[in-house]
């Protein structure tokens, strides 16, 4: 079996990401492990978005909602787990937890549920409407988080101690990186499997020609909703990890700026490409770190760079390395 150039580039990028923290430790710069962890988590969030945006052509400008709800799931469960007080839902109550796998399940479920509600309404529309509506719903969760003071409101919520994983000391940075990296790898496999499945074929076909898909008897709405929900779940998982990385959750995780950044990651990397989000996240974090070190005004230059990519270099980094897709 021959490996396509895109796959080779993808594997290369993923291996480079794995090598960064080990190289950092070798060089005695452990700070870079955190940077690599940030790359892995943002890449995971973007893999989620790439399912909807890249494969399904659903330009969601509201994925911060899922990212943030994952973060808040981690923050809220951890704060209850730490204080020992159960979460009270009125009719029933749940114990809090500081166990990552349990938190992940809750985060993914919450993300999926929210995506189902937002998607069910937003997917009735398309094009610009879809962009604006997903943005508006994300904004709604943002204002809700700000105006609901129980979990910190505008000030956000700290996680006292990074949550635990059975058998692993998550306080050691490299261990936490490996957890995030493992989940990223799993998500990439999920993305590749989805892309090549019957479901993925229908989803991509619905992006290219909705009428034809409907004509052969597949309802595009249901396919898209399913993709949107899976996408929201993956991004929510990344949100939970992000909260653990920073040991802090705030409404800014839900802000429209976050949604924009996730789209930017995908565009920088390459839309719909398997390794696009990984390339984009690595590039973005590197850019942020290098320019942020040089000038306080790094966002100005990020804007210029982004403008340049959109106007002149479509296809992103993966596109640059691999060439244009054969069909698109």
């Amino acid at each position: 079996m021959t490996i396509s150039r895109e796959t080779a580039v993808g594997i290369g990028l993923v291996l480079i990401l794995l090598a960064i923290p080990y190289a950092a430790i070798e060089l005695g710069k452990p700070f870079y492990v955190t940077l690599a962890t940030r790359m892995a988590i943002l890449a995971l969030a973007a893999v989620g978005l790439n399912l909807a945006l890249g494969l399904g052509g659903l330009v969601s400008f509201g994925h911060a909602a899922f990212f943030g709800i994952g973060g808040y799931a981690a923050g809220i469960l951890a704060s209850h787990g730490f204080s020992g007080q159960p979460l009270d839902f009125g009719l029933f109550s749940l114990p809090g937890t500081t166990m990552m796998p349990a938190i992940w399940v809750v985060a993914v479920a919450a993300g999926g549920l929210l995506a189902a509600v937002i998607g069910a309404i937003s997917l009735r529309t398309s094009g610009v409407y879809f962009i604006m509506i997903t943005l508006a719903f994300a904004q709604m969760t943002y204002y809700f988080a700000i105006s609901w003071p129980a979990y910190g409101g505008e000030d956000g919520l700290s996680i006292t101690l990074r949550n635990a994983f059975p058998g692993v000391n998550t306080l050691v940075p490299i261990n936490f990186f490996l957890i995030c990296y493992g989940l990223l790898a799993a998500a990439l496999v999920l993305f590749a499997l989805t892309r090549d499945s019957r479901f993925g074929a229908a989803l991509q076909a619905a992006r290219q020609n909705e009428v034809r898909v409907a004509t052969v008897g597949i309802a595009p709405y249901r396919i898209r909703l399913a993709a949107f929900v899976i996408s929201g779940m993956v991004t929510a998982l990344a949100g939970a990890l992000y909260a653990d990385l920073n040991r802090f959750v705030s409404p800014s995780m839900l802000s429209w700026h976050m949604s924009g950044e996730l789209i930017v990651l995908i565009i920088l990397g390459g839309v719909g490409r398997l390794a696009g989000p990984v390339a984009g996240a690595m590039l973005f974090v590197l850019f942020e770190f290098l320019l942020g070190g040089l000038t306080e005004r790094w966002q100005f230059f990020l804007g210029l760079a982004l403008l340049g990519v959109v106007l002149f270099a479509r296809g992103g980094l993966v596109g640059l390395l691999v060439g244009r897709p054969r069909h698109g």
Partner: peptide, 20 residues
Amino acid sequence: HLDQVLATFALILIFSEGTR
């Protein structure tokens, strides 16, 4: 629309940082 969103998002970054 995706390109339009991104390019105008980039403009926001430029305008905001420029004004600051």
